[in-house]
Amino acid sequence: MITPITETDLLLFYYQEADEVTTSIIREHLPENTDWQYFLNELATISSESSSLMCSPSNTTLSIILEESRSQLEHTL
């Protein structure tokens, strides 16, 4: 009997945090299970869209931090 796989298991599988047994069950049955494929595709879409929101701090902020790190180094050495 196959252990029932929940959406939580699929979530952990997607983020590569599922245990070995769950991972191997999902890998084995994924090609024939359209519900799982659908859920994982949705997760992939959300992750991919999420990455479009990635942003950087301003150059001014980075310069201040680097200046502080240099100054701390001079004090320490």
């Binding site: 701090p57 680097l66 790190s69 240099r70 180094l73 050495l77």
Partner: peptide
């Protein structure tokens, strides 16, 4: 960095800045 290598700190900052900044934002 602790041994005086500033470039090491810059690498560390550049490696993680976007992830940390976006999370804060």
């Amino acid at each position: 960095y602790m041994q005086g290598n500033q470039a090491a700190f810059e690498t560390l900052l550049n490696r993680h800045r976007n992830r940390i900044f976006t999370s804060i934002y």
